[in-house]
Amino acid sequence: MEKLIFKYPAASELVSRRAHVGVVASGDMEVLLEPSGAPGARIVVNTSVDGYRRTWKGVLDRFFSHYRGAAAIEINDFGATPGTVLLRLEQAAEKSRR
């Protein structure tokens, strides 16, 4: 199990409400997204699979290429694929806008 932290200081749009999606089931993950209360976004990843920092960075870079929310995001991951990670992040972002 590994804990990874990422920061995206440029993400500065107000997050209006918090959102939770997903389950820590095999091949899946949960996302807790809430207003960070500060400029920029901060992501904490707790993952069951060690040694994938670069992959996480790549997926998150892609997400933050279009997402601008100043969000505090916590991910509890049980071996989700990059595709699932992106899907869950998009779902959480969508839910937080509703």
Binding site: M1, H20, V23, V24, E30, L32, N46, T47, S48, E74, N76, D77, F78
Partner: peptide, 10 residues
């Protein structure tokens, strides 16, 4: 769970 290398759920 964390002490056993298992990711908890919130």
């Amino acid at each position: 769970l964390a002490a056993q290398g298992l990711v908890p759920q919130a």
